[in-house]
Design a protein around this nucleic acid. Structure first.
Lengths: 251, 251
DNA sequence: ACAAAAGTGTTAAACTTACACCCATGG
DNA sequence: CCATGGGTGTAAGTTTAACACTTTTGT
């Protein structure tokens, strides 16, 4: 049964976070050919006795320092962050070195104090998604195309994140364990790239059963009236969903 | 770079259709160990120079006789049927013969005149999903557990189909190129396992832009008033979505 | 004529949207 | 006391849900 031996299997990570009210993706500079010097998604080989989700969790920890409980292949366990399988890419020529099938994972993480302070992550950095995908990039910075088929994987990851915010409470994965409604709104606005009415958003979030739960305390630092703090609630899906405004929809 | 050679890569298919107003899945009897005699999802090895979607399309043709244009890794091209990547399963011990990573695909096909009349499909058959997943199986027939982790893959495929009917026009993939509103409603009721109001369903379907388009003709065979025939419309997503009734929702 | 299924009309409830308005804090 | 953001109220428009009712066929 050695018909199709010789495949190499990797995991690649689309790690998204919100920084400065904009959606950012974690990228690494490739130090060796092929695509030397180009940005790429972080990732690595699946070990011989390792599950796919375990490999993704391990790579995420190596690249970001985030330790996750039983993340992938199970519901996000605890407070912040989220990891899920995205899709698998295996075109015969996608890697010039040989037949490499990559299982892409999507990770949503809170804005980390030390950006990409992992061991492997010598040249890892957060890049604005608009710049990385080369839409209407406002920053004149790193506009270089991504290595391999990573631009396509990134686009799929971003679209998945956009869609999932509609009908799941996953926006909270971008926030610290306790957060305000405004922080949550910033997440939606950054991911969808569209402004939302603060009043209606507040009502919607607090009224949808299981989305958020009051944490008791309030913030004090800001300029205006202090905001209540919330934790993520037990709901797995939002019902009814929070649909993004029509103009930003695909199709 | 031969760190993780030795993976075998397969595609497995969750092929769903509607027969006798119930959701059915295409299964094959395994003729050789392991899991000899058990039901399994159809599938096979990815060829050395074959793309994943191509492998899935090929297997689908071999098992069902369905020829698809540019199905997977592209929008469903033409009239009936649909094929999309579902998820990838690669637990180290999922196959006792070695390290096999399988990329599962979900196919939605119309009720075929000759069930599973393919070449490979010596022992292929349509099995009611309730029986295959062993929920509250009404049929006392084949209740045996599926081989490998196929029960889990099947469950994921069914849940994906249920969710996708909500916000895409994919129900039409279960129908022939021309169909009535009642046929489309049968699809929703079979997949969701819940009755829908025929009047409101009719209005919803015909009012949602791009869901269906009139085909001109009408049916005549049935008992009551003849129904108009429709074709699938150009819409990729339903907006607003057609949400399934609350009691049947997960979470 | 009657049963069966297709399709339209109508109404109340629920939800979204837009925006007026008040609340609480820092400067 | 004023700017800034947090949070509540309210009314108009839209969508859903439930069901009465008419249309068109086979028997």
């Amino acid at each position: 049964m050695a018909i199709s031996d010789g495949f190499q299997v990797t995991v690649d990570l689309v790690v998204l976070t919100i920084r400065d009210r904009a959606l950012h993706v974690l990228l690494v500079r490739r130090r060796y050919p092929p695509y030397r010097g180009r940005w790429a998604l972080p990732g690595g080989f699946v070990l011989p006795n390792e599950d796919l989700g375990t490999a993704a969790t391990r790579e995420l920890a190596e690249e970001t320092g985030i330790e996750a409980a039983g993340w992938a292949d199970a519901g996000t366990g605890g407070s912040a962050g989220h990891l899920e399988q995205l899709a698998t890419y295996g075109a015969p020529r996608r890697d010039p070195r040989g037949r490499v099938v990559t299982v892409a994972y999507l990770a949503l993480v809170p804005d980390l104090p030390s950006p990409a302070a992992g061991s492997d992550a010598a040249a890892a950095d957060w890049v604005e998604v608009t710049a990385a995908t080369g839409q209407q990039g406002r920053a004149a910075s790193s506009r270089a195309a991504l290595a391999f088929d990573h631009a396509s994987i990134l686009a799929d990851g971003v679209e998945r994140a956009r869609a999932k915010l509609e009908y799941t409470p996953l926006a909270a994965a971008f926030c610290p364990p306790e957060f305000t409604v405004a922080q949550l709104r910033d997440v939606y606005e950054a991911v969808w790239g569209a402004p939302l009415d603060p009043r209606n958003f507040h009502r919607k979030v607090t009224a949808t059963a299981g989305f958020v739960e009051p944490a008791g305390a309030s913030t004090g630092g800001g300029r205006g009236r202090p905001a209540q703090l919330f934790r993520r609630g037990p709901a797995e899906v939002l019902y009814p969903p929070l649909l993004r405004p029509a103009p930003a929809r695909p199709g």
